[in-house]
Simulated assay, not measured.
Amino acid sequence: MTLQELAQNWISYAVGIVLGRFKPGVPGALGRGGFSEEIAEKLRELSVPHGIAVLDEGHPYDLAARVFETLTIIYGEDQASEIVHQATAKQGDPVATVRKYLSGPFFREHIKLYRKRPVYWLLQSPKKRYGLYLFHEKLTSDTLYRIRGEEYVAAKIRLLETKIDEMRKLKDVSEGREKRRLEKQISEFEDVLEDVREFAKKIDAILKQSYTPHIDDGVLINMAPLWELIPLWQAEPRKCWKALKDGKYDWSHMAMDYWPERVKEKCKINKSYAIAHGLVDELLENPKSKNNFI
């Protein structure tokens, strides 16, 4: 293993701690490590609620800041900075470097490592100006509502709107170079705002269909309805979504959620499907389907 690979593994471990996959110091837990209780407790305190962390500077659940803090607790600030440098081959502010790494390269490496069944999911706005990581095992039917709400997307939209309004007021009383600087900043912030609003619209469209994850369906099927929220890796989830629509995975709970009538019809003639969806007793009692089913 190269130094770069080792450093990347430490960043991945830190991501797992923050997202709640690893529980340092907890007997029998995954990723418990060999830390002192004092250090283990500090590391556990960095875990975010609900397995959601955002790539957004200044946010209380900023994944990059918490990843670097994790490394600092384990190794000290200087060594943590060196780990970031070795992992990314980049110099500069380590937290900003980690944030950029998590916004793309880390997720691509993670997808390869887990053979296209990622444990951590990177949801991003269409132009990738805003993004969040999820630990898929903590997904619930409330997760997207939480992301869309006041902790994340809605708060970001409101913050951007306020900032743009403030800069416009300053621009109105400015002249020359300062006015041109503010005009450029306003344009940049408006681009980000438009991107985040589009992200919100895509989430709203998914919420209207009452998205509910089902861990037993597997990673890719659970990702499939969210394919538009994963611009960095859309091809596989989108392909799976098409297969779901075409009836290829009607054994899955996700298929039952979206196309219940079609799936129930298949259950009448496919006992394994009926078992998967808990419809065996119901179908046996139905004389119209009993002969085909048995």
Results as ranks from 00 to 15, higher is better:
25 G>L: 05
274 A>T: 14
93 D>F: 00
220 L>Q: 10
126 P>R: 00
250 D>P: 06
62 D>V: 02
50 H>A: 12
48 V>L: 05
213 P>S: 05
217 D>A: 01
22 F>G: 03
292 N>S: 13
189 F>G: 03
194 E>F: 02
23 K>S: 07
204 D>V: 06
182 L>D: 05
234 Q>K: 14
164 I>Y: 11
44 R>W: 03
58 G>Y: 06
199 F>D: 10
111 I>V: 15
135 F>Y: 14
168 R>T: 10
14 A>F: 00
119 V>W: 02
210 S>P: 00
52 I>T: 01
211 Y>F: 14
279 L>M: 15
285 E>I: 14
167 M>N: 13
188 E>H: 06
29 A>M: 12
219 V>A: 00
243 A>S: 14
266 K>L: 13
255 A>N: 05
180 R>S: 10
218 G>T: 10
110 H>Y: 04
113 L>D: 12
165 D>G: 01
154 A>N: 03
127 K>M: 12
171 K>Y: 08
133 Y>S: 06
214 H>E: 01
257 D>S: 14
25 G>C: 04
251 W>I: 14
294 I>D: 11
146 R>W: 01
36 S>M: 08
16 G>E: 00
264 K>N: 13
136 H>P: 02
267 C>Y: 04
174 S>R: 01
184 K>V: 11
87 A>S: 07
109 E>S: 06
273 Y>A: 15
135 F>W: 12
95 V>A: 08
187 S>K: 12
